Structure formats: structure tokens, C-alpha cells
Computed example of a mutant assay.
Amino acid sequence: MSRSLKTWIIGGVAALLLAFVVAPFVYTRFLADDAPEKLSVGTAASPEAAGESASADGAWKVASGSQAGYRVKEVLFGQRVEAVGRTDQVTGTLTISGTSVGEGSFTVDMASVRSDKDQRDGQFRGRIMDTATYPTSKFTLTEPIELGSLPAVGSRTKAEATGELTLKGESNKVAFEVTASRTAAGSFEVSGQIPVRFTDYGISNPGFPGIEVEDDGMVEFLLKFTR
């Protein structure tokens, strides 16, 4: 083998190493933004309102500032990253009687979900979730949420939620923990993470060439409610 051919081969191997190993490592470790923290409720309250525990009975609706989306773990050319997509296009209602949430649901506009990568978003709206055919996803309570006691303004409480999650036209029973926080006498927040196995909803594995994705992920939400 000639010296020039050897040089060419070595150079080619080095270029491939740079493209498929070094470059993704540098990107994920030094250039890419860290995944945002999980959506969670706040506890901020004005000094005048802190500690109040007025009745929450009645109907409530999802207000501006609410968010919902997904969180999945990816392997990008050998480098582990966490992919997060979100939207603020969320609607919903719930009713409270005493310390029980009797009815509730929220709906998400799937075509408006965005991550930090246009290519990922294109795959999400097309092959993965087919938002043209299935423009929304929905969660509906099927059992009351028993809070035990209403949190005072500026504090939070945890409870178990059971309901039906619909993604891409497929519905499954789900159970998960929610956290509720009273932010004022006339408003409160609820956050949660719903585990999702893609095959349960007829969703193809979200991976594509160069990116491997685990077989399950998380639907996460932060809902802000007002009267």
C-alpha cells in the first residue's frame, strides 16, 4: 500500500471519528443548552395572602401561563441527552367540592409543541404524532382526586390522580402523582408527570438516523387555574 493511500485512509478515519464521536461530544457537552427543569408548581404568595385557606369549591379553568409537553431520553451519536418539547396552548377545566377534585380534563394543541431543534419538531409533527390527523391530546380524570386537605396559600400538597390519557387517537388508563399549590385565594397550580410507553399509543419509536430514543417517555404539565 502506498504512503499516499495510507495517509488518505488515516485522514478519512480521523474525519469520521471527528464527525461521529468528537463533534457530538463537544456539541452536547459544551454547546447545547441543558434540558429545562421539569415543570413544577410554585409557592410564591403575597405576605397578606400567605396562610389563607379559603374554600376552593366550584368550577375552575386553565389560565394563561400553563404549559404541557414531553420529556424523553435520547442518545445523539453516542452522547446521552434529554429532549424536551413544550407548548402553552393548553385548555381545560376542573371542579372542586370540599377537598375532592371530582371532574377535570385538559387538552393540548400538539402541532404547537416545540423543542430546541427544528428537525426533531418536524419528526414530532409528522411521522411520530401525525398532528395533521390527531391535532390534540387529552387527559380526563376518571376518579376523584382526594386532596385530604386544601393547601393554604403559599403551600403545596401531593395526591394521586387516575384518568385516561389520549395520544394519537389511542386512550389508556394512567395513574400518577400530582402536586397542587395555592398561589392566591383565587388561583392555584397543578403539576405532574405522566409515564408513557410509546407502543401503548401506537406511536413509532421517535428515533431516527443518528438519534436513538428510549421506548418510553414522560408527558409533563403545569396547569394554572383561575375562576
Rank of each mutant, 00 (worst) to 15 (best):
G58V: 10
K117C: 10
E48H: 09
R80T: 13
A68Y: 02
L150G: 06
D121R: 00
F139Q: 07
A56G: 02
G98I: 08
S55H: 02
V108F: 04
S112G: 09
A111K: 04
R156H: 08
G148Q: 07
P144I: 04
Q67G: 05
V72I: 00
R114E: 11
R71N: 10
A132D: 14
R114D: 09
Q79P: 04
I128S: 01
T99K: 11
T131C: 10
F77G: 01
S100H: 12
G122A: 02
P135V: 06
V75I: 14
D130C: 10
V81Y: 04
Q119W: 14
G98R: 10
T140G: 09
F77S: 03
A152W: 05
S137I: 06
G78W: 12
M129W: 03
T87A: 01
A50R: 15
F106G: 00
G102R: 08
V113W: 00
L150Y: 14
R125C: 08
E82L: 10
W60F: 01
S46N: 10
R114L: 09
Q119C: 12
I145Q: 00
E146K: 14
S55P: 05
S66A: 09
V113I: 04
A56N: 05
P151V: 09
D121Y: 01
E103C: 01
D130T: 14
F124Y: 14
A56Q: 08
V81R: 05
D118S: 13
S155L: 04
R71I: 11
K158R: 13
A54W: 00
Q79E: 13
F124H: 02
L150W: 11
S155M: 04
S149D: 15
V81W: 06
V90T: 13
R127Y: 12
P151R: 02
G78M: 07
G163F: 02
L147Y: 11
A54M: 03
S46K: 12
E143H: 14
V62E: 00
A49I: 03
D88I: 04
G122E: 01
P151T: 10
I128Y: 04
K73V: 15
A54N: 02
A111T: 00
L76D: 12
V84Q: 04
Q89Y: 12
V101D: 00
G104R: 01
T107V: 14
D57I: 11
R86N: 13
W60G: 03
R127N: 13
P135G: 06
A56L: 14
G69I: 02
M129I: 07
A50K: 15
G98F: 08
Y70Q: 06
S100T: 15
T131V: 15
S105H: 08
S100L: 14
A132C: 10
G69V: 09
S112P: 03
M129G: 00
A68F: 01
T107W: 08
A45N: 05
S137Y: 06
G92S: 07
L76I: 06
V81K: 05
